[in-house]
Design a binder for these strands. Structure first.
Lengths: 215, 215
DNA sequence: TAGATTGTTAATCGATTAACAATC
DNA sequence: TAGATTGTTAATCGATTAACAATC
């Protein structure tokens, strides 16, 4: 197995999907080489940043020409694991959970939600985006049978920690956590926190400061 | 007008909603004073971090006692503008946009979506979460009439820049941008970027690295 | 050679963490 | 005094930016 470059910083990783989208467009258009200057025209990142980012993927450019889109696309997908299909469960089919199920882009990234769970008896049995909602009690067995090890967690704050622990017990190795609660889990579980409330706070704060300045 | 402390860093702001939620619970339970040690029991942040965060709000604690929840709640809401009601438009009623409309927490934070817009003639006229979807061409006038200056933008990548420019033209001062595209706008517009794809990338990367290590 | 480019090393900046001082 | 706490200053870390070298 080839060694993954560990120097890939998390902010770089966050930008990779943006690169990927543009590179795919260029590749489809038959472009053989693209320079950083051409890339930033669409991306609006700093050119040094782009070079650092691409460099940390382990892909070398060619002087006077630039980088090969095909090569970069392969490297990015490799790095993110978006080349192999990944299956995931989703726990908590509220407004947000349901939206994520309907969000086509996830599938494009090789990330497929294959089963949905909830505790609410009013929801269990209903369909959401063509999928029957199952009771969480069925999750552990199904996970083992299907070999699923990644989960999207869109549950209310109170349930976050217990649900996460249940997932870990069931052999899950990754939790994409939308609950706005910091989780306490063993080291060998990958957790990615998303906080909509945090984003809203940053947004309203910026707006607030700006409006105060203008007044 | 009292001077806003500019030393409030953006990461602190992102954490404020977490503090707020717990403080409200404590306040409702009649707690008069809370120490940082008590707070982190629920929050799982570092205690120094909590003190820095609270300190940057300009609220002083009392030795041996801690902080007054009521005081902190007021300071946080002031800082984020969550005390006064804020109205916003949403542009782009796809899966994600529609979910945000149904996401109750936003309203709790004094952030209310008061009108929804789309370009798709198939969507215009339909109802989403009890709101009639209007054609974007109606946005500028309605914004002026209602005095709305904040927008949630959940449009596809290609439309992001033009829609943003249209918003700015219509007097908008804040754009909460879910389009995964970096916007080029004048300085005096507050932009908050959210990238679901970026989050997914970070998640799958972490998972990938972890699984590679275990194998 | 001149120009366009990649690539690297050092400086800077923002945020967190560590160490310690101060106080009730 | 001892203990629990707030609060501050310095060290560290991660990421970006600036300056420059190297190459086709």
């Amino acid at each position: 197995m080839e060694a993954k470059k560990p120097e890939l910083n998390l902010q770089t990783v966050k930008r990779l999907p943006s690169y990927l989208a543009i590179l795919k467009k260029l590749d489809a258009a038959g472009v053989e080489y693209v320079s950083t200057t051409a890339l930033i025209r669409e991306l609006k990142f700093e050119t040094v940043l782009v070079r650092k980012d691409l460099g940390s993927l382990g892909i070398a450019g060619r002087q006077n020409l630039g980088y090969r889109p095909k090569e970069l696309i392969a490297a990015i997908e490799e790095c993110l694991g978006w080349n192999k299909r990944g299956e995931a469960f989703i726990v908590g089919v509220g407004a947000l959970g349901s939206a994520l199920m309907g969000y086509g882009k996830l599938k494009e990234c090789g990330f497929e939600i294959v089963a949905a769970f909830d505790v609410d008896p009013a929801k269990v049995g209903l369909e959401a985006h063509g999928m029957k909602i199952l009771h969480v009690s069925k999750l552990p067995n199904l996970a083992k049978r299907m070999g699923v090890r990644a989960a999207v967690m869109t549950v209310p704050a109170e349930s976050a920690q217990p649900v996460a622990e249940m997932l870990v017990q069931s052999g899950f190795k990754g939790i994409w956590n939308f609950s706005s609660v910091e989780l306490e889990l063993p080291e060998n579980v990958a957790v990615q926190n998303e906080s909509l409330a945090g984003g809203l706070a940053q947004f309203t704060r910026k707006l607030n400061v700006l409006l105060a300045k203008e007044a």
